[in-house]
Design a protein around this nucleic acid. Sequence first.
DNA 1: CTTTTATTATGTACTTTGTACACAACAAAC
DNA 2: GTTTGTTGTGTACAAAGTACATAATAAAAG
Lengths: 252, 252
Amino acid sequence: MLPMKKNGHKPETVPEGKTILIKDAKSLVDNYPKLAITVDCVIFGFEENELKVLLIRSDLEAFRNKWTLLGDIIRDNEELDDAADRVLLERTGMTDVFLEQVRSFSGPGRHPGGRVVTVAYASLLDVGHHQLKITDNELHWHPLNSLKDMGFDHKQIVDACYKWLQKMIQEHPMGLNLLPDKFSLRELQNLYEAILGVELDRRNFRKKFFTMDFLIDTGEMEVDVPHRPGKLYKFNFKKYERNKKKWFGIDF
Amino acid sequence: MLPMKKNGHKPETVPEGKTILIKDAKSLVDNYPKLAITVDCVIFGFEENELKVLLIRSDLEAFRNKWTLLGDIIRDNEELDDAADRVLLERTGMTDVFLEQVRSFSGPGRHPGGRVVTVAYASLLDVGHHQLKITDNELHWHPLNSLKDMGFDHKQIVDACYKWLQKMIQEHPMGLNLLPDKFSLRELQNLYEAILGVELDRRNFRKKFFTMDFLIDTGEMEVDVPHRPGKLYKFNFKKYERNKKKWFGIDF
DNA sequence: CTTTTATTATGTACTTTGTACACAACAAAC
DNA sequence: GTTTGTTGTGTACAAAGTACATAATAAAAG
């Protein structure tokens, strides 16, 4: 019933369940199949009430004219998290940005150059706060809705990260990283509606956020809006960190 | 401000933002730093009202006498998910088990044999349903509470998967994979209390599960219990799949 | 066989949260 | 100044969560 092992950590064993210890760990690792690891960043932005992703044209002949994510091979002795930070910094000049590992993708045929496993990271940043200075490979913000036919398996990665985002903005206030420091409640609601793809009641949305009591009234108002300006708020991240809900109560 | 790139996807560019296409993707990948990828499975079980993990003694001299997770290198052309399934099958003989990717660990010094990135998988299975036939490397169920000083960074991996489990059993009925097919409500509550580390009100716990309306009364009762036997229930996974809550309403 | 003990099973009162819906105040545009 | 669109504040009701009590049942003890 159990398949034979051709390969792997586990060495031959003697009947009593004892183990022969491996002394030369290095040769063990050296004999592993050859492959490479990359990180790919799904960088979300929010502009004109639309969710966007930062993309470039592939520089591989095999994917000519296809859109791809920003990614890179991890370097010697570089942690995955650091590699993702580096990619983000190199491409956007931004640091201290919300960035989190989502999951790995390992399809054997996903890279034309050989076996490449990638770890997807999702990142959220305020488009208005950072003008793209680099335009290599047509780097630009691409609307998530009109996105298809990407290079590699990047469409699949984007889809997975989008689902991740939808879930996460409901559990954590990370969606606020997509907005400027000061924002109106309307902007906040637009963000949630766009990402979740739902319509929310304006009054209940307000009530919800006010009763959470993490919004700080800046005393300022919107400017240059073609209607009655709304109040501008900041999010009290410090208070949130202190008081975040540790919820019990089963919920499915 | 932007650091130089020594390595990576991105080729030299000409000033107008155009790109030189790379035709030989293979040589690109071949020049990547050498490393290996493993999967490590955190296999949870529930026994005597205690959460346990399936562990073995390390077979590496460097980690002599340390406990480690069940893991293996991924093979040529093998998906990560398949590798995790394989490890589970090889070690426990079980198939069709709940198993999900949690996250990757990439600390440069985590493996004495060289650079090894691992992808952690968490798995849940009913201890009683499967007697361990293999005892190589002292394979056994280890109580989660009395666990420290593991080989590699495996303690860190276990901790991350435990947090993942705590979160997931509240959002999905996957905790039921730790129990037999038929279970009493007391067993179910013990499971939740043990994993979450809380005490729950018995009456409200029942009400919660009954109003969800996913429990099927089997008509059978507990046997061999030293007190009044309780009813045995099954979980209606099919109904759950049809009706699972798509929750809106922001929640932090 | 009766009593004690532990556990199952069910219900009620109250609080908090979520949902549907209405109206007045304000600023800009005509 | 009137119209128009948006902001800002409630209110009434429904649903879900929480605290708490008591009866029924089976095993164990006497």
